[in-house]
Design a protein around this nucleic acid. Sequence first.
DNA 1: CTTGAACCTCTAGTCACTAGAGCTTGTAGA
DNA 2: TCTACAAGCTCTAGTGACTAGAGGTTCAAG
Lengths: 138, 138
Amino acid sequence: MFSIGELSKRTKVKVPTIRYYEQMGLLAEAERTSGNQRRYDKKGLERLSFIRHARDLGFSIEAISSLIELQDHPDRSCEAATDIAISQLADVRAKIKRLKLLEKELTRISECCDGHGVSEDCYVLAALADHELCSREH
Amino acid sequence: MFSIGELSKRTKVKVPTIRYYEQMGLLAEAERTSGNQRRYDKKGLERLSFIRHARDLGFSIEAISSLIELQDHPDRSCEAATDIAISQLADVRAKIKRLKLLEKELTRISECCDGHGVSEDCYVLAALADHELCSREH
DNA sequence: CTTGAACCTCTAGTCACTAGAGCTTGTAGA
DNA sequence: TCTACAAGCTCTAGTGACTAGAGGTTCAAG
């Protein structure tokens, strides 16, 4: 059994974040000492590692809730889990697509002004003011 | 002179968002009718288009504030504007980099489970539980 | 037994909006 | 000119995933 600080160190999840996850129902309520401090065991560590890993992959708290629910019922179909993963993947791909458009546009805009001129002649500002100056949709 | 609803239609920025931008100081306080309704002219339209465009490119409200400040002083050096654009570009590139790692990992994980099995054997859940199963850092 | 680091709860702040309540105004048709 | 009612107004609170801080308590080493 170890403290929340120890759990934090081992999982690299900050202490307030751990408490937040508990509040959100992602982590079961921890056992307490007589003085009301949280104590965790291996199971708590594993669950938090799972959460941390899923968060790192960009899953929402809600999605993680569903994944944990499934994990707790080993006999259930895992269709929902793959669905969540696939939809997360689609999300990530959509974000990449959009960001790449932004990257192109920002690169183009930045390259057109060296920053040595005066605001009136600045291509960055002109481009923002006038969408017509954009090379494509974004 | 036109109403906030008309401005909203022309710029595709929602009415409450326009009011929010005003509150945040991005838009100057609009003129009002005797009945306290906002009225806009060409200048208001241009400024909101600028804001909309910058937001579409992912600039923060704060960054846009600085850009507008520069725009209002045509004689100032535009170094700050290019700095802001370049730092935004760096941001976007960092996000793309991270998302690509996530994409790889999520693709790999998703492909390992067809969703027809049972939660206990699900590779998606197993991969999340155990970082060792990841193919690389993410 | 003392010290102080670590713990506790609770509230409020972050960003860029969005939603809703409860009220007032503008405008088109009768 | 009157009447609907769409559109406007302000204000407060909610979103997601934390983070910061106040003000108090507990644990463990020396």
